[in-house]
Design a protein around this nucleic acid. Structure first.
Length: 642
DNA sequence: GTTTCGGTTCTTTTT
DNA sequence: GAACCGAAAC
């Protein structure tokens, strides 16, 4: 048995009650900063303590970061007794099941996972084939998010498209056609996008009761983090897998539901007690994170939202300072203000990494980035482009993909179009000649390929061929890093230096990628993991710069905390953003976003309210302060320095 | 007919 | 920074 855990000492009474809840459905309403992760990990440890074998516990999270943190903390607490735990994101779990059972749904078990980029090009080529990609038609990204919404809400594309384009002259029938072609193409190349992982996971259970029964029986306990962010498909899947033992514990905070745009349905959490009438409900309201002045602002801002579980954040910390409201002329002045303030905070003893600047959208941080660079203030930003979706990373992975999955057209085309004088058309022709399949160990296939290449690319292709052969001869499927190394040596290094102005940085990324491959036992595992891994900071960049301030979107800041937080662009139209207000529930969600942002702060919170912005045509747009700021009783805020 | 190049425009949020 | 579009180059 492991060392004993002192539940009474480590947890407050609210948390203890939740951790020691008896079997059956449990709903934990955990407000921001109330020790939600702590409660969940202690629950896991407590189950292990009771002698429940950890491989019969399923723990679902939303982000890779949350999964990692939870597993680490559970292990620290309960040691090896939790090592067999099944834990990860929904997408990971679905992938884990589908790798075993995809054949039951007429997929190959070696299916590829498409990221946003891949999905986009597939949709584009579908739309091109149908000849609908004119000016009057939505762009691939718009179509994709529409398909995604349909999938997540378990609704038809027709329904979502009709809703979405109610007031626009868009041919819904064409959209349905594109969706059909897109789905067909995915089948042809044996690929699933992120949504397919979830929906196929559900289909697997629905259509194969025998498989479902196995997992229902297996998982005695199912725990779900961030339940308010689940979509319909996920909720159904959870209900199914927990149906036999009914030991379903969900943790969430409807106040922090900020993902409805991708199909999250906070009704899942609201209606949980109705779906499970014997639910035990526990509320966590004691906040350890923030000073009372910050919590008062957070409570005040969220109180007006309709349809929610009533919760009040109760502070345990001592009073400090009121949040500071700063009215500024424009983004430039805002940047100046933030930087001046940071200087003061430094003098007051705060470290760089105690400070975060949060904003609605990436572009709202541009002026600040500029200013920080000029003033030599180190900053760390989680940028819009995700590590694994950068061109050079995808380039070197395309060779791994085509080796692993002969029907992966996207990888094939990507690989070939890197060669000189080979573009989409040429690559497509060769792919057709190969009858939509490239087996690298097949001599005929390689001959066909070579013959299809224009003269200008023959020289570049030649040294790549031996790598393909070596994959089989030397059994390199167990060492994807070696494939990348050889590929770089023979081709990509030269390509990169000729193509990218920031060659060195990109090659460093690739070096990191190679190191990263060693964590995986083979190419297949590596590829399917990295498709699900979107942020570098979760895995590759754990050792973030300790001496830098953090710039982040609010969405990416969820679950994190800093001593000092600045919120930028609190202007009506920027935050809440114009686009989010267009559809009905938009304002409430934006308000929750503001709530999430303000509850990230431990000691000090700064609300920045610029009143104008340069328009594209050179004019000036004026904004009134964000409605969220106006809603806060003025005496809760400080407006002058004390 | 294809590919490549150069200029222009626009950035929500994530697995 | 990357997606898009039109023009130049192969």
């Amino acid at each position: 048995m492991m060392t004993s855990i002192d539940f009474e000492k480590d947890l407050n009474t609210e948390q203890q009650a939740a951790v020691q809840a008896s079997d059956g459905p449990v709903l934990i309403l955990a407000a921001a900063g109330t020790g939600k992760t702590r409660t969940l990990t202690y629950r896991v440890a407590s189950l292990a303590h009771q002698g429940i074998s950890s491989d019969r516990i399923l723990l679902l999270t939303f982000t890779n970061r949350a999964a990692q943190e939870m597993l680490d903390r559970a292990r620290a607490l309960a040691g090896e007794s939790v090592s067999g735990l099944w834990g990860g994101t929904f997408h990971h779990m679905a992938n884990r099941l589908l790798r075993r059972h995809a054949d039951a749904l007429d997929y190959g078990n070696d299916y590829t996972i498409l990221d946003q980029d891949d999905a986009r090009s597939l949709v584009r080529s579908g739309a091109e084939e149908l000849g609908v990609l004119g000016k009057q038609f939505p762009k691939p990204d718009v179509l994709l998010s529409l398909f995604s919404l349909a999938s997540g809400r378990d609704a038809s594309v027709e329904q979502i498209a009709t809703e979405q384009f109610e007031h626009h002259p868009v041919n819904v029938e064409d959209i349905i056609q594109v969706h059909r072609v897109y789905s067909k193409k995915k089948r042809e190349i044996n690929a699933m996008d992120f949504d397919d992982l979830l929906s196929n996971g559900l289909t697997l259970f629905n259509e194969h009761p025998d498989i479902l029964a196995r997992y229902q029986d297996r998982f005695l306990y199912v725990l779900v983090d961030e339940y308010q962010d689940t979509n319909k498909i996920q909720a159904k899947w959870i209900d199914l897998i927990a149906a036999q033992h009914r030991n379903l514990l969900v943790v969430g905070d409807d106040f922090q539901s900020i993902y409805s745009w991708r199909g999250a349905d906070y009704k899942n959490i609201i209606s949980f007690p109705e779906r499970y009438p014997d639910t035990q409900i526990y509320k966590l309201e004691t906040n350890y994170r923030s000073v009372p002045e910050i919590l008062e602002v957070a409570n005040a801002c969220i109180a007006g939202n309709p349809n929610q579980f009533q919760k009040q954040l109760r502070a345990v910390r001592e009073g400090h300072k009121k949040p500071f409201l700063s009215k500024l002329y424009d983004g430039h002045e805002q940047a100046q203000f933030v930087i001046n303030q940071i200087m003061c905070l430094r003098v007051a003893g705060y470290a760089m990494h105690d400070i975060a600047i949060l904003y609605r959208s990436h572009y709202q941080a541009m002026e600040l980035q500029l200013e920080c660079t000029q003033q030599r203030i180190p900053y760390q930003i989680t940028s819009g482009v995700r590590f694994f979706e950068q061109a050079h990373i995808k380039d070197v992975c395309s060779i791994l993909r085509i080796l692993e999955q002969p029907s992966d057209e996207l990888a094939f085309v990507r690989l070939l179009t890197l060669l000189p004088r080979v573009g989409k058309k040429t690559a497509g022709k060769i792919w057709n000649k190969l009858e939509n399949r490239f087996e690298a160990h097949n001599n005929d296939h390689r001959d066909l390929l070579r013959q299809g290449l224009p003269a200008a690319s023959q020289g570049a292709w030649k040294p790549i061929e031996p790598i393909l052969e070596a994959y089989y001869k030397e059994n390199l499927s167990e060492d994807p890093g070696e494939i990348i190394c050889r590929y770089i040596k023979t081709f990509y290094d030269r390509y990169a230096v000729e193509t990218f102005d920031n060659y060195h940085r990109r090659m460093e990324d690739i070096e990191e990628l190679i190191t990263y491959t060693t964590d995986f036992e083979n190419n297949e595992h590596f590829l399917s993991e990295m498709a699900l891994m979107t942020n570098i900071d979760t895995e590759l960049q754990k050792d973030g710069d300790d001496n830098a301030i953090r710039l982040s979107t609010i969405h990416q800041a969820k679950g994190l905390e800093w001593k000092v937080v600045f919120i930028l662009w609190l202007a009506d139209g920027m935050f809440p953003s114009v686009r989010s207000l267009e559809d009905g529930g938009g304002e409430a969600e934006e308000r929750r976003l503001f709530y999430v942002a303000s509850t990230r702060a431990k000691d000090e919170l700064y609300l920045c309210v610029p009143e104008s912005r340069r328009a594209r045509d050179g004019g000036v747009i004026y904004y009134s302060p964000s409605r969220f700021v106006k809603e806060i009783p003025i005496d809760l805020l400080a407006t002058e320095k004390n």
